Simulated scan of single mutants.
Amino acid sequence: MTAPEAPGQPPEPALRADAERNRERIMEAARRLYASEGLGVSMASVAREAGVGKATLSRRFTTRDELVNAVFTDRMEAYAAATTTALADPDPWHGFTHYVETICAMQAADRGFAAVLTISFPGAAALEARRAESYQGFLELISRAKATGHLRADFASEDLVVLLMANAGVIAATCDAAPGAWRRLVGQMLRAFATPDAPLPPIADAPDSADLYRAMVRMP
């Protein structure tokens, strides 16, 4: 025999379905806010955007790292896939330049992800594991690109980290007034990484001075 359900209480499957709906609402709200405003968005703001209470949010995600891990798992998978694609390119130098452009474009498409690539999240185990895996692939890509003679011998993996940090800053400062400014930065940095005879993709035009000024006056 089984115990009867308490009057007025929904069956367990309904509770689980409701919890999953809340989880998805929270993740979608976090994606929207992180993409448009960056990772500085508070957990309370995410709860309001999702239309749930703070207690509901904390039951689904006890820390910000847990929420970031859930929201950006698919983005980090795409990041890892970009490394695999670059390593499969028969021309390692082209693979290198295309990889840098791809990753920086991923940052430009999502301000939250722009920050994720430059911040460590110890509580987001899956995200950090994929980051470490991608980093090892990038080290191999560096070695192969140097062997072509087109990547400067003094290029270090840390140079990409610096570029990603700079790109995240440019994106945050110019995303409204001069949204293509990051492309110019990436083009110039690729030229800094290359040896004098290396073939390079076309460089984007410099941002319009008036647009850049509008971005500058809004900076804190």
Results as ranks from 00 to 15, higher is better:
V46S: 03
R23V: 02
T118C: 13
L87Y: 00
A47T: 08
D91P: 06
L87I: 00
A30G: 08
E140T: 08
H150Y: 14
L164R: 13
R191Q: 14
V68K: 02
V116K: 02
P179N: 04
P122N: 07
A30K: 03
T83N: 03
I26E: 05
A47H: 06
R183W: 06
A19L: 11
E12T: 08
Y213F: 14
D65N: 15
M165R: 13
A204R: 01
E158V: 11
G149S: 03
T85L: 10
A70P: 00
R32A: 14
H98N: 12
Q188K: 03
T56V: 14
E5I: 10
E28S: 13
G8L: 12
A47Q: 03
A156C: 09
T62K: 15
F193G: 05
A105V: 06
G51F: 06
R191K: 09
A78N: 09
L33E: 10
R32V: 12
V71H: 09
Q107T: 04
V68Q: 05
G95Q: 03
L127V: 11
F121M: 14
G149L: 07
A206K: 06
A129K: 08
S157Q: 05
P90G: 00
R184V: 02
V161N: 15
P202E: 15
A125D: 12
M43N: 04
